[in-house]
Design a protein around this nucleic acid. Sequence first.
DNA 1: CGCGACGTTGATTTGCCTCAACGATTGTGG
DNA 2: CCACAATCGTTGAGGCAAATCAACGTCGCG
Lengths: 191, 191
Amino acid sequence: MEDEILKEVFKEADFTSEELRSIGALLRKVSLKKGDILLSEGDTVLYTHFVYSGCLRTYFLDNAGKEHTLQFAIKDWWISDYTAFFTGDKALTNIECIQRATIYKLSRKDMERLYLEIPAFETFFRKKLERRFMALQKRVLGNLAQPAKDRYLSFIQNYPNIQQSVKNYHIASFLGITTESLSRIRKELAR
Amino acid sequence: MEDEILKEVFKEADFTSEELRSIGALLRKVSLKKGDILLSEGDTVLYTHFVYSGCLRTYFLDNAGKEHTLQFAIKDWWISDYTAFFTGDKALTNIECIQRATIYKLSRKDMERLYLEIPAFETFFRKKLERRFMALQKRVLGNLAQPAKDRYLSFIQNYPNIQQSVKNYHIASFLGITTESLSRIRKELAR
DNA sequence: CGCGACGTTGATTTGCCTCAACGATTGTGG
DNA sequence: CCACAATCGTTGAGGCAAATCAACGTCGCG
């Protein structure tokens, strides 16, 4: 994997150049086109993925057949079915490429080894996890405390770059509303 | 701090007994009675807290004056305003003791030092964080995909021990519904 | 061009909220 | 230990935000 890309993946980390090299040797490039499924419900989840370009989403399919988007990922984000990735259980979600993407995958096995060998590696992912945790908590709070319109406004404010890459029905399924409701909200805001 | 308690706090961790001792030296016991406020909105959050006994809750107060419970914590759980604790920002939430409690607090400063000195300490909290992350994601999914009744059923199934310690209006504010709605749900389920 | 995917609009329904009143339970001071 | 108040939970009537169901534009693409 190319050096500039590797530096970008771990730009906030505190690695020596040898450490960086040995980590980079474990990342594998994957190219995806729009519509590709990176992961399906029921799969064993061996990898987490760094998004170098493009856009992906994790979604859950409920009993009624409705999709609920858990996560979007664009440049510089990591994406996986984390619950399955952390526990070893089968995936409950699906990951779909929604805009032609280049990603780099890293296996749980290699991560476990790196956690032991390179303390700074564990620090890097602990901090990533802290940030993801905060974002999720903010989302829970939004779901509890805000009506749909406010959640939509927060969304386009917090993820201006994602908004361009995704369809409105993806946003609706992320916010927990129907496409019709989102359409009406957007109409009202357009005034 | 007493050795048996210390062992319980870190029972899943892989520490040497010297490591355990030096960590234990940094934990401070705090006793709380029902109604005590451990942390208020606007505070600087210097500590995270291990609950040895009793029950606490983290809640957010919205503009309309409504409470939204983010987290309950009973025996063996850690509790804080994590967003403020991680970032150093002021707390946006409050933490209240809802059942006489004994807790042990650990400062961020000490944690940072331990992260550097004892890699197994970072592993311990990374894994804790992974579990918290999974729980939160499950909650987001529930909010998106389930009606109030199903969320209530999941709650009493997942937290049977907490249910005894908290009032119904605490549960309602956790589920994102009113006490009246919860009352009607319970009535319907009682049949 | 014509078809499928996406977004919009309208009519109606529904799950949950609001407001108000009233039991039940808990806690407390006399 | 009882009396009374405060807190907590329940019930009912009415309202609202968002869902459902159905139909119809519009855009992009094979």
